[in-house]
Design a binder for these strands. Structure first.
Length: 401
DNA sequence: TCTGGGGTCCTAGGACCC
DNA sequence: TCTGGGGTCCTAGGACCC
């Protein structure tokens, strides 16, 4: 039997949030292209969300890194320009990119807002090679949408992703089996997908500094030291990855919402008010997905950055705001030890499709009643916008203050 | 120095059952 | 009295990704 090599592309937007902001500004008549100056996209420092979300190439030359505090970025480059983020706008450009890719195949996996995998194995035109399509996509995106992408060309997802991460911006790179040794093995271990800052020192202690060092190590030794994860990174280092491009959208496995508070909260009532609004958002998204949750999880981060979480499995899956809130409140009570709280989060996990469980819910009158209330509120939200509906308690709170 | 928010997956220990 | 082994489920925490 002949094994057919898969034809995979990985499309990665260069400095996505910053590029998209630049394009949007130009479209709105601004003359300065923020891709050409030291600039970053950052969260609101006054709300304690001041981290770097994206950077221009010039900002990168100053050593500025994504995820670091804007304060650090200013130290590295005092005249850095900071722009705020806008997720609705990012979505618009992400969709525009996706629409172009759809002209080539329907086997597209939206790996994140700015990255897609494409499987062209069955869709490659007879007169074209995979690399030709990669160049065509790259140039079309630049000409039609105004921002640049890198495209990785390979026979599996891992190698395509590694390839798109080579020299940037506006480049196409191949990473076929015979190129692994020359193009990938020389790179530092930190460049390998899934190798993060916690595993780097552990690998270095094993005399592993480059991806090649890892590839040549005995697989059993890695499994001994890292378990399942050891096998994964050893296979990645050797260019092995049999995972499929997931082109049929999967249902979420969990839904969460968290906020860093504008200052550390110590007042239980204040914390519970935030908890309720988080639960409202989470349960609303759950209902929009037509799903029910079996597990509720509450997480807090203290002023000292210690993270604690508690979760509880429910007897009956639910999407009811009230039921989730009552559980979340209990979990918060267990967690809260009167230490000032910096962040609070709610997640639901263990999700299932609502339709699968409809029958068992019929005998639950309380749940049925709550469903009706939630549905009325959801409809009002859809009609008048999410902020239209405020719980009576919030209104009381406002009137008293 | 001052440190976001949304996810997925894995591990380890304890409870419980046969 | 001193005491198994395997399996599943639940929970807390952590690593990693963008």
């Amino acid at each position: 039997m002949i094994k057919i090599e898969r034809q995979i592309l990985h499309v990665d937007v260069n400095n996505a949030f910053l590029s998209w902001t630049a394009v949007e500004r130009l479209k709105n008549g601004e003359t300065l292209d923020i891709r050409t100056i030291p600039a970053i996209i950052g969260g609101d420092e006054s709300k304690r969300k001041g981290v770097v979300l994206a950077k221009s190439n010039i900002a990168k030359q100053f050593g500025i890194q994504t995820g670091e505090p804007i304060y650090f970025a200013r130290k590295k480059c005092p005249n850095i320009q900071v722009f705020s983020s806008n997720h609705a706008m990012y979505r618009k450009y992400s969709d525009a990119l996706y629409n172009i890719l759809c002209e080539y195949t329907d086997r597209i996996e939206r790996f994140s807002i700015d990255e897609c995998f494409m499987d062209l194995t069955l869709f490659l035109p007879k007169n074209k090679k995979l690399i030709d399509v990669a160049y065509e996509i790259k140039d079309r995106v630049k000409n039609e949408l105004g921002f640049t992408v890198n495209v990785g060309v390979a026979n599996n997802k891992l190698l395509a992703k590694m390839a798109s991460d080579f020299q940037k911006p506006d480049k196409v790179h191949t990473l076929y089996k015979e190129e692994i040794e020359t193009k990938m093995w020389c790179l530092p271990i930190s460049d390998l997908f899934m190798v993060g800052k916690k595993s780097i020192p552990k690998l270095q202690r094993m005399q592993i500094k480059t991806i090649g060092d890892l590839a040549r190590k005995d697989e059993r030794e890695l499994i001994k030291n890292f378990g399942k994860f050891g096998r994964v990174i050893w296979e990645y280092a050797n260019g092995i990855d049999n995972s499929e491009v997931v082109y049929i959208e999967e249902k979420p496995k969990g839904i969460g919402n968290s906020v860093t508070l504008p200052y550390d909260y110590s007042n239980v009532e204040e914390i519970e008010t935030v908890l309720l609004s988080l639960v409202e958002q989470v349960s609303y998204r759950l209902r929009k997905e037509n799903m029910l949750a079996k597990t509720v999880n509450v997480q807090i981060k203290t002023n000292e950055f210690k993270v604690y979480s508690h979760q509880k499995k429910l007897d009956t899956p639910t999407s009811s705001t009230k039921i989730i809130y009552m559980e979340a409140k209990k979990l918060l009570e267990e967690l809260y030890k009167s230490v000032p709280i910096r962040l609070i989060g709610v997640r639901v996990d263990n999700l299932c499709e609502k339709d699968e469980l409809q029958i068992s819910l019929f005998d639950n009158k309380q749940e049925e009643k709550q469903n009706k209330i939630d549905n009325v509120l959801d409809n009002l939200k859809e009609k008048y916008g999410y902020n239209f509906i405020k719980r009576a308690r919030d209104v009381e709170h406002k009137n008293n203050s």
